[in-house]
Design a protein around this nucleic acid. Structure first.
Length: 154
DNA sequence: GCCAACGTTGGC
DNA sequence: GCCAACGTTGGC
């Protein structure tokens, strides 16, 4: 079992959007970064738990939990010329970009802001809190994941 | 809206 | 294969 954190701008797809989605599930398309792509394609497994983070929000915060319900498969928007995520170098035989399916698990009663997270010793090395961290899909250690849940009162 | 910190692109 | 220029992310 692995743990992850995904970023989403609430204006484009918030955790409430995920909760309202059919089967509370969505495909996590549009990631166009190789490091993130490799994790989506190779490492995220069904059942893995995912922290859901709102970036460019006021304030930015971890708002809840999701889980992986389908493992990496080609992102069809990469080969769709009409999509904003179209990549002319992607083909059906060489999809280049991948995505997973995520399902809503729960929304925290109180979202955890960066200010909530920064003082926590167990989270000192968390990728999210690293200066200049831009990865939209990040690995989270078990200890970090448990520390986050502890903060919301579990 | 600013800008630091990245990642990518492309000329050489 | 280097690296300057450029585009993007995302906190502030």
């Amino acid at each position: 079992m692995n743990y992850w954190l995904v970023k989403s701008e609430p204006e484009s797809f918030s955790i409430d959007d995920l909760k309202k989605a059919p089967k509370k599930t969505t495909f996590w398309n549009g990631v166009r970064n190789y490091q993130a792509r490799n994790m989506l394609r190779d490492e995220m497994k069904v059942g893995d738990e995912v922290l859901y983070y709102h970036s460019n929000a006021e304030p930015p915060c971890i708002v809840g939990l999701a889980k992986v319900v389908k493992e990496g498969y080609p992102d069809p928007t990469a080969v769709d010329p009409k999509s904003e995520y179209f990549d002319e170098k992607a083909t059906k035989d060489n999809p280049r970009w991948f995505m997973v399916d995520l399902q809503f698990v729960r929304k925290f009663d109180k979202p955890l802001t960066l200010d909530d997270l920064r003082p926590i010793k167990a989270l000192a090395k968390m990728e999210l809190l690293r200066k200049g961290s831009r990865l939209s899909v990040q690995p989270v250690t078990k200890a970090e994941f448990e520390a986050v849940l502890k903060l919301v009162g579990d």
